[in-house]
């Protein structure tokens, strides 16, 4: 079969690409479009390092075919910051030292952003369960959860940026 032609809005920009059926959205992002911020940790939906937001919903880009992106709006880690201004989740990850190696960080930030988009005031338990699909082997999650809770407070206007 010839390659599929797909048009999608990626990080706010209309993007066209060609892909083969079996290529996942993660393959497309990394190898076709060159957005390598989304990482492959498992390719089976178990680690969350490839998390992206598709039409407002958090998904693993390794569990979605590239062709399914047709007509969709996709946000990757590269689209989380607003130009020079970091998203509060990004800023709080830095301030809380919520990353060590940084490999799981893009997926965690995308997932945390999706959480706060849906639930501006999560409990610690809610945050932990929401992020259970994002494995981090370095931090023990402590500072990650603190960063997410602090970012939520900032976004609610209850804490300083």
């Amino acid at each position: 079969m010839a390659k599929q032609h797909v048009t999608a809005v990626i990080n706010g920009e209309e993007t066209e690409f060609l892909c083969e059926t079996q290529q996942t959205m993660l393959d497309v992002l990394r190898d076709v479009i060159g957005l390598t911020g989304s990482k492959e940790g498992c390719a089976s939906g178990d680690c969350g390092a490839c998390s992206v937001i598709v039409d407002g919903r958090l998904v693993c880009s390794c569990l979605m075919l590239g062709v399914e992106a047709e007509g969709k709006a996709i946000t990757t880690i590269e689209g989380v910051a607003d130009g020079e201004t970091l998203h509060p989740v990004q800023q709080k990850f830095l301030e809380h030292a919520a990353l060590q190696c940084g490999f799981c960080t893009p997926g965690l930030i995308v997932a945390a952003k999706a959480l706060l988009d849906e639930n501006p005031n999560p409990t610690e338990t809610e945050a932990r369960y929401w992020l259970a699909g994002n494995l981090c082997r370095c931090t023990g999650y402590d500072k990650v959860i603190r960063a997410v809770m602090d970012a939520a407070a900032v976004m609610r206007g209850e804490a300083a940026r």
Binding site: S51, V59, C60, A111, Y129
Partner: peptide
């Protein structure tokens, strides 16, 4: 079933 991400699909 699975993670929040899997729930999206």
């Amino acid at each position: 079933i699975g993670s929040t991400q899997v729930q999206g699909r």
